[in-house]
Computed example of a mutant assay.
Amino acid sequence: MPAETAAHDAAWMAWPSGSYTLGDTPAEADEARRTWAAVANAIVDFEPVHMLVPPSERAAAARFLDERVTVHEQLLDDAWYRDIGPTFVVQGEGSDRRLGAVNWVFNGWGQQDWASWEHDAVASLVATEATGAARIDSPMVNEGGGIHTDGAGTLLVTETVQLDPGRNPGWTKADVEAELTRTLGARKVIWLPRGLTRDSERFGTRGHVDIVATFADRGVVLVHDQRDPAHPDHAVSRELIALLEAETDADGKPLHVVRLPAPATLRDDEGWVDYSYVNHFVCNGAVIACSFADPVDEEALAVLADAYPGRRIVPVDARPIFARGGGIHCITQQQPRVQP
Protein backbone atom coordinates (compact mmCIF):
# COMPACT_ATOMS: atom_id res chain seq x y z
CA MET A 1 0.00 0.00 0.00
CA PRO A 2 1.60 3.29 -1.08
CA ALA A 3 1.61 6.28 1.23
CA GLU A 4 -1.22 8.77 0.72
CA THR A 5 1.49 11.29 -0.20
CA ALA A 6 2.47 9.22 -3.26
CA ALA A 7 1.07 10.29 -6.63
CA HIS A 8 -2.61 9.53 -7.29
CA ASP A 9 -4.47 8.66 -10.45
CA ALA A 10 -7.77 9.69 -8.81
CA ALA A 11 -9.77 10.11 -5.63
CA TRP A 12 -13.00 8.24 -4.83
CA MET A 13 -15.97 9.42 -2.75
CA ALA A 14 -19.61 8.51 -2.00
CA TRP A 15 -22.49 10.98 -1.97
CA PRO A 16 -24.50 11.54 1.24
CA SER A 17 -27.76 9.63 1.09
CA GLY A 18 -28.42 7.97 4.47
CA SER A 19 -31.15 9.35 6.71
CA TYR A 20 -28.89 10.71 9.47
CA THR A 21 -26.40 12.06 6.91
CA LEU A 22 -29.06 14.06 5.09
CA GLY A 23 -30.81 15.00 8.33
CA ASP A 24 -34.42 15.82 9.02
CA THR A 25 -34.95 18.97 6.96
CA PRO A 26 -34.22 20.17 3.42
CA ALA A 27 -31.73 22.65 4.89
CA GLU A 28 -29.82 19.89 6.68
CA ALA A 29 -29.80 17.78 3.51
CA ASP A 30 -28.39 20.63 1.45
CA GLU A 31 -25.78 21.32 4.12
CA ALA A 32 -24.50 17.75 3.75
CA ARG A 33 -24.61 17.88 -0.04
CA ARG A 34 -22.86 21.25 -0.12
CA THR A 35 -20.07 20.09 2.19
CA TRP A 36 -19.38 16.77 0.44
CA ALA A 37 -19.37 18.69 -2.85
CA ALA A 38 -16.99 21.30 -1.44
CA VAL A 39 -14.47 18.55 -0.71
CA ALA A 40 -14.89 16.93 -4.14
CA ASN A 41 -14.72 20.27 -5.93
CA ALA A 42 -11.54 21.18 -4.05
CA ILE A 43 -9.85 17.88 -4.94
CA VAL A 44 -10.83 17.96 -8.62
CA ASP A 45 -8.61 21.01 -9.13
CA PHE A 46 -5.67 18.68 -8.45
CA GLU A 47 -6.71 15.18 -9.57
CA PRO A 48 -9.73 13.37 -11.06
CA VAL A 49 -12.60 12.62 -8.68
CA HIS A 50 -15.10 9.75 -8.91
CA MET A 51 -18.32 9.96 -6.89
CA LEU A 52 -20.76 7.13 -6.16
CA VAL A 53 -24.28 8.59 -6.21
CA PRO A 54 -27.55 6.73 -5.56
CA PRO A 55 -30.23 7.17 -8.26
CA SER A 56 -32.42 9.23 -5.92
CA GLU A 57 -29.66 11.81 -5.55
CA ARG A 58 -28.53 12.24 -9.17
CA ALA A 59 -30.32 15.57 -9.63
CA ALA A 60 -29.14 16.95 -6.29
CA ALA A 61 -25.57 15.91 -6.96
CA ALA A 62 -25.64 17.63 -10.33
CA ARG A 63 -26.65 20.88 -8.60
CA PHE A 64 -23.61 20.91 -6.32
CA LEU A 65 -20.80 18.97 -7.99
CA ASP A 66 -18.24 20.41 -10.37
CA GLU A 67 -18.95 19.01 -13.84
CA ARG A 68 -15.46 17.51 -13.88
CA VAL A 69 -16.45 14.99 -11.19
CA THR A 70 -17.28 11.58 -12.68
CA VAL A 71 -20.50 10.10 -11.28
CA HIS A 72 -21.12 6.37 -10.82
CA GLU A 73 -24.73 5.45 -10.03
CA GLN A 74 -24.85 3.11 -7.04
CA LEU A 75 -27.23 2.38 -4.17
CA LEU A 76 -25.69 3.36 -0.83
CA ASP A 77 -26.46 3.17 2.87
CA ASP A 78 -23.97 5.84 3.88
CA ALA A 79 -21.34 8.23 2.57
CA TRP A 80 -17.95 7.22 4.03
CA TYR A 81 -16.06 5.81 1.06
CA ARG A 82 -12.80 5.64 3.00
CA ASP A 83 -14.47 2.86 4.97
CA ILE A 84 -16.70 1.15 2.42
CA GLY A 85 -14.42 1.51 -0.59
CA PRO A 86 -11.39 -0.65 -1.44
CA THR A 87 -7.91 0.00 -0.13
CA PHE A 88 -5.79 0.31 -3.26
CA VAL A 89 -2.35 -1.26 -3.47
CA VAL A 90 0.33 -1.51 -6.15
CA GLN A 91 1.58 -4.98 -7.10
CA GLY A 92 4.78 -5.85 -8.91
CA GLU A 93 7.80 -3.76 -9.88
CA GLY A 94 8.81 -1.51 -12.79
CA SER A 95 6.86 -2.10 -15.99
CA ASP A 96 5.04 -4.99 -14.31
CA ARG A 97 3.40 -2.72 -11.74
CA ARG A 98 -0.37 -3.08 -11.59
CA LEU A 99 -3.20 -1.82 -9.42
CA GLY A 100 -4.76 -4.04 -6.77
CA ALA A 101 -7.84 -3.38 -4.63
CA VAL A 102 -8.23 -4.92 -1.20
CA ASN A 103 -11.90 -5.50 -0.44
CA TRP A 104 -12.36 -5.77 3.32
CA VAL A 105 -15.48 -7.14 4.95
CA PHE A 106 -17.64 -4.19 6.01
CA ASN A 107 -20.24 -4.70 8.75
CA GLY A 108 -21.27 -1.23 9.86
CA TRP A 109 -18.25 -0.45 12.07
CA GLY A 110 -18.67 -3.56 14.16
CA GLN A 111 -22.40 -4.22 13.67
CA GLN A 112 -23.51 -0.92 15.21
CA ASP A 113 -27.23 -0.95 16.02
CA TRP A 114 -27.78 2.35 14.19
CA ALA A 115 -25.98 1.31 10.99
CA SER A 116 -27.17 -0.46 7.86
CA TRP A 117 -24.77 -1.91 5.31
CA GLU A 118 -26.68 -3.92 2.72
CA HIS A 119 -25.43 -1.68 -0.11
CA ASP A 120 -22.24 -0.39 1.52
CA ALA A 121 -20.96 -3.96 1.96
CA VAL A 122 -20.54 -4.24 -1.84
CA ALA A 123 -19.81 -0.60 -2.72
CA SER A 124 -16.07 -1.29 -2.86
CA LEU A 125 -16.65 -3.30 -6.03
CA VAL A 126 -17.63 -0.14 -7.93
CA ALA A 127 -14.13 1.34 -7.70
CA THR A 128 -12.49 -2.08 -7.99
CA GLU A 129 -14.23 -2.86 -11.27
CA ALA A 130 -14.13 0.65 -12.74
CA THR A 131 -10.36 0.85 -12.29
CA GLY A 132 -9.70 -2.65 -13.55
CA ALA A 133 -7.78 -3.38 -10.35
CA ALA A 134 -6.94 -6.94 -9.38
CA ARG A 135 -9.46 -7.87 -6.70
CA ILE A 136 -7.96 -8.97 -3.39
CA ASP A 137 -10.62 -10.27 -1.02
CA SER A 138 -9.93 -10.26 2.71
CA PRO A 139 -11.82 -12.17 5.42
CA MET A 140 -10.99 -9.41 7.92
CA VAL A 141 -13.55 -6.80 8.92
CA ASN A 142 -11.71 -3.52 8.48
CA GLU A 143 -12.16 -0.01 7.18
CA GLY A 144 -9.84 2.38 5.39
CA GLY A 145 -10.14 4.83 8.28
CA GLY A 146 -8.69 2.18 10.56
CA ILE A 147 -5.26 2.08 8.88
CA HIS A 148 -2.47 4.46 7.89
CA THR A 149 0.84 3.61 6.23
CA ASP A 150 4.12 5.32 5.44
CA GLY A 151 4.20 3.45 2.12
CA ALA A 152 7.26 1.47 3.22
CA GLY A 153 5.57 -1.20 5.29
CA THR A 154 4.90 0.62 8.56
CA LEU A 155 1.22 0.67 9.53
CA LEU A 156 -0.73 2.41 12.29
CA VAL A 157 -3.85 0.70 13.69
CA THR A 158 -5.87 0.76 16.92
CA GLU A 159 -6.61 -2.16 19.21
CA THR A 160 -10.26 -1.09 19.51
CA VAL A 161 -10.90 -1.46 15.76
CA GLN A 162 -9.19 -4.53 14.30
CA LEU A 163 -9.54 -6.45 17.60
CA ASP A 164 -13.13 -5.30 18.15
CA PRO A 165 -15.30 -8.38 19.00
CA GLY A 166 -18.02 -6.87 16.80
CA ARG A 167 -15.62 -6.94 13.88
CA ASN A 168 -13.19 -9.82 14.25
CA PRO A 169 -14.15 -12.01 17.21
CA GLY A 170 -11.35 -14.30 18.26
CA TRP A 171 -8.68 -12.60 16.16
CA THR A 172 -5.31 -11.89 17.78
CA LYS A 173 -2.77 -9.21 16.98
CA ALA A 174 -0.75 -11.87 15.17
CA ASP A 175 -3.79 -12.74 13.01
CA VAL A 176 -4.37 -9.09 12.10
CA GLU A 177 -0.70 -8.47 11.36
CA ALA A 178 -0.50 -11.54 9.13
CA GLU A 179 -3.50 -10.33 7.11
CA LEU A 180 -2.11 -6.79 6.83
CA THR A 181 1.16 -8.31 5.61
CA ARG A 182 -0.63 -10.44 3.01
CA THR A 183 -2.88 -7.67 1.70
CA LEU A 184 -0.95 -4.42 2.23
CA GLY A 185 2.68 -5.50 2.47
CA ALA A 186 2.99 -4.57 6.15
CA ARG A 187 6.42 -5.12 7.69
CA LYS A 188 5.66 -3.55 11.06
CA VAL A 189 2.30 -2.77 12.67
CA ILE A 190 2.20 -0.13 15.41
CA TRP A 191 -0.75 -0.69 17.72
CA LEU A 192 -2.33 2.36 19.34
CA PRO A 193 -4.52 1.44 22.32
CA ARG A 194 -7.53 3.54 21.29
CA GLY A 195 -8.86 6.54 19.38
CA LEU A 196 -10.56 9.76 20.45
CA THR A 197 -13.30 9.91 23.07
CA ARG A 198 -16.24 10.98 20.88
CA ASP A 199 -15.29 8.45 18.22
CA SER A 200 -15.37 5.75 20.90
CA GLU A 201 -18.95 6.53 21.91
CA ARG A 202 -22.16 5.05 20.49
CA PHE A 203 -22.17 6.83 17.14
CA GLY A 204 -18.42 6.55 16.52
CA THR A 205 -16.21 4.03 14.77
CA ARG A 206 -14.78 2.68 18.05
CA GLY A 207 -11.46 4.37 17.48
CA HIS A 208 -10.31 4.92 13.89
CA VAL A 209 -6.65 5.84 13.64
CA ASP A 210 -7.18 8.43 10.89
CA ILE A 211 -8.54 10.94 13.36
CA VAL A 212 -5.61 10.67 15.79
CA ALA A 213 -2.40 10.03 13.82
CA THR A 214 -1.09 9.93 10.25
CA PHE A 215 2.19 9.76 8.34
CA ALA A 216 3.24 13.02 6.71
CA ASP A 217 6.38 11.34 5.39
CA ARG A 218 8.49 8.26 6.07
CA GLY A 219 9.35 8.44 9.74
CA VAL A 220 7.20 11.52 10.38
CA VAL A 221 3.93 11.13 12.28
CA LEU A 222 1.38 13.88 12.88
CA VAL A 223 -0.52 13.32 16.14
CA HIS A 224 -3.67 14.95 17.50
CA ASP A 225 -2.62 17.12 20.45
CA GLN A 226 -5.48 18.07 22.76
CA ARG A 227 -3.79 20.67 24.94
CA ASP A 228 -6.75 21.50 27.19
CA PRO A 229 -6.87 19.29 30.33
CA ALA A 230 -10.64 19.87 30.51
CA HIS A 231 -11.16 17.63 27.46
CA PRO A 232 -10.90 13.84 28.01
CA ASP A 233 -8.77 13.60 24.86
CA HIS A 234 -6.01 15.45 26.71
CA ALA A 235 -5.11 12.15 28.42
CA VAL A 236 -5.55 10.23 25.14
CA SER A 237 -3.14 12.58 23.36
CA ARG A 238 -0.52 12.31 26.10
CA GLU A 239 -0.68 8.50 25.93
CA LEU A 240 -0.45 8.28 22.14
CA ILE A 241 2.32 10.87 21.84
CA ALA A 242 4.44 9.06 24.42
CA LEU A 243 3.86 5.71 22.71
CA LEU A 244 4.78 7.00 19.25
CA GLU A 245 7.84 8.90 20.48
CA ALA A 246 9.19 5.58 21.76
CA GLU A 247 8.44 3.72 18.51
CA THR A 248 10.44 2.94 15.36
CA ASP A 249 9.37 2.31 11.78
CA ALA A 250 9.74 -0.93 9.84
CA ASP A 251 13.40 -0.14 9.22
CA GLY A 252 14.10 0.37 12.92
CA LYS A 253 14.41 4.15 12.66
CA PRO A 254 12.88 6.31 15.44
CA LEU A 255 9.69 8.15 14.54
CA HIS A 256 9.67 11.93 14.48
CA VAL A 257 6.41 12.96 16.15
CA VAL A 258 4.85 16.29 15.21
CA ARG A 259 2.07 17.56 17.44
CA LEU A 260 -0.91 18.85 15.48
CA PRO A 261 -2.98 20.98 17.88
CA ALA A 262 -6.62 20.23 18.48
CA PRO A 263 -9.13 23.03 17.95
CA ALA A 264 -9.95 25.25 20.92
CA THR A 265 -13.61 24.24 20.60
CA LEU A 266 -14.26 21.57 23.24
CA ARG A 267 -17.97 20.78 23.02
CA ASP A 268 -20.97 20.92 20.71
CA ASP A 269 -24.64 20.18 21.37
CA GLU A 270 -23.89 16.44 21.68
CA GLY A 271 -20.90 16.60 24.04
CA TRP A 272 -17.11 16.54 23.70
CA VAL A 273 -16.09 17.12 20.07
CA ASP A 274 -13.59 15.00 18.17
CA TYR A 275 -12.69 17.83 15.78
CA SER A 276 -9.27 16.94 14.39
CA TYR A 277 -6.95 18.48 11.84
CA VAL A 278 -5.33 15.03 11.47
CA ASN A 279 -8.31 13.95 9.37
CA HIS A 280 -7.12 15.68 6.17
CA PHE A 281 -6.71 14.31 2.64
CA VAL A 282 -3.42 14.51 0.77
CA CYS A 283 -3.82 14.72 -3.00
CA ASN A 284 -1.58 15.65 -5.93
CA GLY A 285 -0.01 18.97 -5.03
CA ALA A 286 -2.39 19.81 -2.19
CA VAL A 287 -3.75 18.97 1.23
CA ILE A 288 -7.51 19.29 1.66
CA ALA A 289 -7.60 20.31 5.31
CA CYS A 290 -10.33 20.47 7.92
CA SER A 291 -11.17 23.90 9.26
CA PHE A 292 -13.62 24.65 12.07
CA ALA A 293 -13.98 28.46 12.21
CA ASP A 294 -11.77 28.02 15.27
CA PRO A 295 -9.00 30.17 16.78
CA VAL A 296 -6.53 27.32 16.26
CA ASP A 297 -7.27 26.95 12.51
CA GLU A 298 -4.43 29.23 11.43
CA GLU A 299 -1.84 27.53 13.67
CA ALA A 300 -2.88 24.03 12.59
CA LEU A 301 -2.86 24.89 8.89
CA ALA A 302 0.66 26.29 9.34
CA VAL A 303 1.77 22.98 10.90
CA LEU A 304 0.31 21.15 7.90
CA ALA A 305 2.10 23.51 5.50
CA ASP A 306 5.41 22.72 7.22
CA ALA A 307 4.66 18.97 7.22
CA TYR A 308 3.79 18.91 3.50
CA PRO A 309 6.23 21.31 1.82
CA GLY A 310 5.39 22.18 -1.76
CA ARG A 311 1.70 21.36 -1.39
CA ARG A 312 -1.07 23.91 -1.32
CA ILE A 313 -3.16 23.82 1.87
CA VAL A 314 -6.85 24.07 0.97
CA PRO A 315 -9.14 24.42 4.01
CA VAL A 316 -12.78 23.28 3.91
CA ASP A 317 -15.20 23.84 6.81
CA ALA A 318 -15.54 20.29 8.11
CA ARG A 319 -18.01 20.93 10.93
CA PRO A 320 -21.00 19.56 8.98
CA ILE A 321 -19.03 16.35 8.28
CA PHE A 322 -17.97 15.91 11.91
CA ALA A 323 -21.55 16.53 13.02
CA ARG A 324 -22.44 13.44 10.98
CA GLY A 325 -19.63 11.28 12.36
CA GLY A 326 -16.40 11.86 10.45
CA GLY A 327 -14.12 14.23 8.60
CA ILE A 328 -12.56 14.95 5.22
CA HIS A 329 -10.30 11.88 5.26
CA CYS A 330 -13.29 9.69 6.12
CA ILE A 331 -15.14 10.60 2.92
CA THR A 332 -12.20 10.24 0.52
CA GLN A 333 -10.13 7.32 -0.80
CA GLN A 334 -7.01 7.62 -2.95
CA GLN A 335 -6.29 5.57 -6.04
CA PRO A 336 -2.48 5.47 -6.33
CA ARG A 337 -0.72 6.04 -9.62
CA VAL A 338 0.61 2.75 -10.95
CA GLN A 339 3.12 4.02 -13.49
CA PRO A 340 5.65 6.57 -12.17
Results as ranks from 00 to 15, higher is better:
residue 2 P to S: 04
residue 44 V to T: 11
residue 259 R to A: 12
residue 110 G to T: 08
residue 99 L to G: 07
residue 37 A to C: 07
residue 167 R to T: 06
residue 151 G to T: 09
residue 46 F to C: 05
residue 152 A to N: 14
residue 13 M to E: 05
residue 134 A to P: 09
residue 47 E to P: 13
residue 25 T to M: 04
residue 189 V to I: 10
residue 254 P to S: 01
residue 251 D to H: 10
residue 69 V to I: 00
residue 191 W to S: 02
residue 210 D to A: 06
residue 169 P to G: 01
residue 141 V to E: 06
residue 172 T to L: 07
residue 299 E to M: 10
residue 97 R to T: 08
residue 238 R to A: 10
residue 277 Y to S: 05
residue 42 A to F: 06
residue 254 P to E: 09
residue 148 H to G: 11
residue 281 F to A: 15
residue 65 L to T: 10
residue 270 E to M: 11
residue 203 F to G: 09
residue 124 S to G: 14
residue 227 R to G: 15
residue 186 A to P: 13
residue 144 G to W: 00
residue 176 V to I: 15
residue 14 A to P: 13
residue 304 L to S: 06
residue 306 D to Y: 11
residue 135 R to K: 13
residue 50 H to G: 11
residue 333 Q to K: 02
residue 297 D to Q: 04
residue 102 V to H: 06
residue 167 R to A: 05
residue 132 G to L: 01
residue 286 A to G: 12
residue 18 G to Y: 01
residue 135 R to L: 13
residue 209 V to W: 00
residue 48 P to I: 06
residue 23 G to K: 01
residue 124 S to V: 13
residue 115 A to M: 06
residue 281 F to M: 11
residue 148 H to F: 04
residue 58 R to F: 07
residue 97 R to M: 02
residue 243 L to H: 08
residue 141 V to A: 09
residue 269 D to Q: 15
residue 179 E to W: 02
residue 288 I to P: 05
residue 81 Y to P: 07
residue 61 A to W: 03
residue 38 A to F: 05
residue 208 H to N: 10
residue 103 N to E: 15
residue 164 D to G: 12
residue 331 I to G: 07
residue 209 V to Q: 03
residue 53 V to A: 13
residue 215 F to D: 05
residue 48 P to E: 11
residue 336 P to W: 02
residue 97 R to C: 03
residue 132 G to F: 02
residue 284 N to W: 01
residue 276 S to E: 04
residue 245 E to R: 09
residue 33 R to H: 12
